[in-house]
Design a protein around this nucleic acid. Structure first.
Lengths: 244, 244
DNA sequence: TCTCCATTATTGACAGACAATCATACAGCT
DNA sequence: AGCTGTATGATTGTCTGTCAATAATGGAGA
């Protein structure tokens, strides 16, 4: 099999818009619920309407954008109920990815995974949330590449993007950091033993712990919002209906 | 909670094109590897290029279409290796969906699931493959609706579409039908007992059995193709690279 | 037969236009 | 005041035409 690591593929303008827009959403440059009108995006990216519309369609399918007919695209909003569902799916997909990694990753990839883990473990508690999120992202990049399953990689990637905002807040919780490190250590150690079942369990446990923290935070926010006089407007939350 | 079953949402032309194109692909009206040029699709659907391009972008994100730069969209092709991966993911997602159904579906939904199962069980062995696929599709529709998890529903839906062609051939295997029915019966019965673990196992088992049959068929085809002088051209299999 | 080049078709991207629809504000009525 | 209806303005959905860049095709020539 030829090495295609040096292969370059031409990147149409559309792809760049897709990537930047995706990035802008998952880094919260656009807030959930925000209206992304054609005009605005055209001006922002300096491209024509057609390109914007195509990019929006792709991000719509990825679930990052919700399009309401005759009103246009909005940044998707994740309710507490939906977050629960996301974590439920993540737990099994991540477990599957971990198991695949334990089975099929090369020794180099395992070493790489440990290296990223050590970086996470060495992070001071007061670090910027985006730094931590970036490290965790790299951890997942290694994991998803080494699990040798394109489909689990794609879907987990989408899920991680989908609730990246929530993840940023849970990761940044200083009291949570040592627990996170311990959980990830369990994953890495299980992988190093090539322990299928152990990795599965460790991954599952990790996500479920994260889910608990996330939902606690979400409920606190909800409570705080309820005590405030005017609840956030939350414009047009998912009026779209999946067909089929 | 207000009943939104009467809600009507306007369907832009684009949505119709998306649906029809998706349907045409999963029912094999377009063969894998086939080139779907703008012109052709414009003529077929009688709409402008912009609409076509947007629809293609959406189906690209769903994995049904692969777009190679400067050559346009092709119907995605599923290699044996990829099929293995799809079944691996399906097994856990379907298990999760089943578990969610066993926990959270209403008694009406459980009855509905059994009703569809009875239809499947009553199918004569010589039935058309598309009839069976349609029934199975309905089974999944009920399951995915009742599991109360939008995300697992979306992802499993995509996976089922992705390998619908393969599923049609495995389902149509007459020697396989009784086994299929038995496996699905196990699922339904576990659900009726509200047995989380049992449903999980039954679903997992069902997919793994299906995977075995599918891979056997794929290998037979591959062997047959290899014995033939000219192997099928299989133009441009997944040259696209996922970013990030 | 093979190689190289010119022609042609197709994609990627842009701009302009138009009807349909939605949001808003304002006037009028009870 | 509170509600209803309408006029205005902005935005979306869609079509058309245009143009450069790239890939596929086919033929000329060695």
């Amino acid at each position: 099999m030829p090495d295609d690591s040096l292969q370059i593929t031409p990147q149409p303008v559309r792809r760049q818009v897709e990537e930047r827009l995706r990035d802008a959403i998952i880094t919260s440059r656009f807030m959930p619920g925000e209206h992304l009108s054609d005009r605005k995006l055209c001006d922002l990216f300096g491209v024509s309407r057609g390109v914007i519309r195509e990019a929006v369609r792709l991000l719509e399918a990825e679930g990052l954008i919700v399009v309401v007919p005759n009103r246009g695209p909005f940044v998707a909003y994740l309710s507490a109920a939906e977050a629960t569902q996301v974590y439920e799916v993540r737990s099994v997909l991540e477990a599957l990815a971990g198991q695949g990694f334990a089975e099929r990753a090369s020794t180099e990839e395992i070493a790489e995974l440990r290296a990223v883990f050590e970086e996470i473990a060495a992070t001071p508690p007061g670090a910027d949330r985006m730094v931590l999120l970036g490290l965790k992202r790299r951890f997942y990049d290694v994991l998803l590449r080494g699990c040798r399953n394109t489909y689990v990689a794609r879907m987990l990637d989408q899920l991680l993007n989908r609730n990246s905002q929530l993840r940023a807040t849970t990761l940044s919780d200083p009291s949570r950091l040592p627990h996170t490190v311990a959980e990830i250590r369990r994953i890495v150690e299980a992988v190093e033993r090539r322990d299928r079942e152990g990795t599965w369990q460790a991954c599952r446990e990790h996500v479920m712990q994260a889910a608990q923290v996330a939902l606690r935070i979400l409920n606190e926010h909800a409570a705080a919002a309820a005590s405030r006089p005017a609840p956030p407007p939350r414009p047009a939350t998912v009026p779209r209906r999946r067909s089929r």
